[in-house]
């Protein structure tokens, strides 16, 4: 788990009170309560599967059972060595979080905002832990890892990406279902991919892209 102070600080930042109200005891107590409630509600589950990339094209990369249709990600992977593996993952905080958020929304929108912020941070935190897991999975080879990408990133279509991952991973194993709108339930669920290779000149495709003001740009 992230340490308490980091979690509280993140809730403050995410909910828009960075630098404001920090000394307000009521707000601090409310944030602390939200953090504790979210931790109590956690039913964290994750699934990760490794696939070897068997073909690289200009507009897509393919494993045996999954393909990623993105020209920019393909371009990034084309710079890697011949042997590239891909970690495909899904992670969820579980349905209890959704119930907690719904209950708090009826009681207090401020509390719900803190709960939502805590859930987002914890989801990202554990997705980061999956990156560490993937790194340890490269064993003695000490392969380089790319950044983590989720469907919808750059030119990887959200709907197509979610369907690819859903077909590749058995999301029901972790209690995740995808709706016809390609949104997932429970609410705090994240899917994504990470590439591993011994040669990795670029960890993300942002340097190929001219959209300098893109909110998702990584440097």
């Amino acid at each position: 788990m992230p340490d308490n102070e980091t979690l509280l600080e993140w809730i403050r930042i995410c909910s828009g009170i960075e630098g404001k109200g920090l000394t307000d005891a009521k707000i601090h107590a409310c944030i602390q309560d939200a953090a504790s409630a979210v931790i109590d509600a956690l039913e964290l589950k994750a699934i990760i599967r490794v696939e070897t990339i068997i073909s690289k094209r200009d507009d897509s990369i393919c494993g045996k059972s999954i393909s990623i249709k993105s020209a920019n990600i393909s371009r990034m992977v084309s710079l890697m060595s011949d042997k590239v593996t891909m970690y495909v993952f899904a992670l969820t905080l579980g349905v209890e979080f959704d119930r907690l958020l719904k209950t708090r929304m009826e009681k207090s929108l401020a509390e719900a905002l803190f709960i939502d912020a805590a859930g987002s941070f914890i989801t990202e935190y554990f997705a980061g832990q999956l990156e560490n897991f993937a790194e340890s999975g490269t064993g003695k080879q000490r392969l380089c890892l790319s950044d983590r990408f989720s469907p919808g990133y750059c030119d990887w279509d959200l709907r197509a990406g979610q369907f690819e991952i859903m077909n590749f991973l058995d999301l029901s194993e972790i209690g995740v279902k995808m709706l016809s709108s390609s949104m997932m339930e429970p609410l705090k669920t994240i899917t994504g991919i990470i590439f591993a290779s011994d040669i990795m000149p670029q960890k993300n495709p942002c340097s190929f892209c001219n959209r300098k003001k893109c909110g998702y740009r990584r440097y």
Binding site: G16, I17, G21, D24, A110, L113, F114
Partner: peptide, 14 residues
């Protein structure tokens, strides 16, 4: 006012 402070006002209203 921050957004949460504003939402406390909304909560009080409700």
């Amino acid at each position: 006012k921050s957004v949460p402070e504003f939402l406390f006002s909304v909560d009080t209203f409700r």
